[in-house]
């Protein structure tokens, strides 16, 4: 299988008066269509790693190749374009725009690249609302929903541009156990049905155990990389 993400020799140093190195020589590839988790204690560097994969941050040294293109040397605009097309984010906080409805929030990544909404994308949004089970609130303002509904809306938003990769940073951090379970079920369904690659950052080993591959980071280094054998 081909890799959708390739990291080689990634160092990350924060220079804020004193240099603080948070990632040390990370080499990591993710296969297209895989379902992965990155675990580690807080401060281990896992979120920094995810931000580098997601092009929100740049490595101090090393190469980042996403969907065949090197992003660490790309222009800001090109990176923004790639982020819009190839990557979908789900964060611990839903980060919906409070001025907009659920539907408008969901369509935002599409509107960033296309000035006009197509019939196809509207149909797709409807189907996704159906899939995650929140069709009834799609015209609510983002502020007028429960936490679970907000996080599901954020998932639809991450999916609307058919990204190759979904990066999720503690996506269930603010959800109760019922919603947490539903969230990972949705992730699994999408991974299976659409073939989207998932990388989930979490500190919760139980969540990581539900994924097919667990990468553990400690003090900025990979200390474990475990792949589950799955029957096709």
């Amino acid at each position: 299988m081909n890799n959708v993400i390739e990291l080689s020799h990634i160092d990350k140093v924060y220079s804020n008066g004193v240099d603080l190195q948070v990632l040390f020589d990370i080499n990591l590839n993710f296969e297209a269509g895989s379902f992965n988790s990155i675990i580690g204690q807080s401060g281990s560097g896992k979120t920094t790693l995810l931000n580098i994969i997601g092009t929100l941050d740049r490595p101090t040294r090393g190469e980042v190749v996403i969907d065949g293109s090197r992003t660490d040397t790309m222009s800001k605009d090109k990176v923004a374009e790639l982020r819009n097309q190839v990557i979908g984010f789900v964060f611990q906080f839903h980060f919906l725009l409070p001025e907009f409805t659920a539907m408008e929030n969901v369509l935002m990544p599409y509107r960033i690249q296309q000035p006009r909404l197509s019939r196809d994308v509207l149909k797709k949004a409807d189907e996704l609302f159906e899939l995650v089970g929140i069709s009834e609130i799609k015209n609510n303002l983002a502020t007028r929903m429960s936490g679970g509904q907000q996080q599901r809306t954020a998932i639809i938003r991450a999916l609307i541009n058919n990204p190759k990769v979904i990066l999720a940073d503690e996506p269930s951090g603010n959800l109760d156990s019922e919603n947490t379970e539903a969230l990972y079920r949705i992730f699994r369904d999408i991974n299976k049905e659409i073939g989207t690659t998932f990388i989930i950052v979490t500190h919760d080993r139980r969540i990581a155990e539900q994924t097919d591959r667990i990468v553990e980071i400690r003090d900025g280094r990979i200390v474990m990389d475990l792949k589950k054998w799955r029957n096709a």
């Binding site: 997601g54 800001k76 980060f95």
Partner: peptide, 10 residues
Amino acid sequence: ILKAMGIKDR
């Protein structure tokens, strides 16, 4: 949020 979703600076 918009920048994370890929809106260009301009």
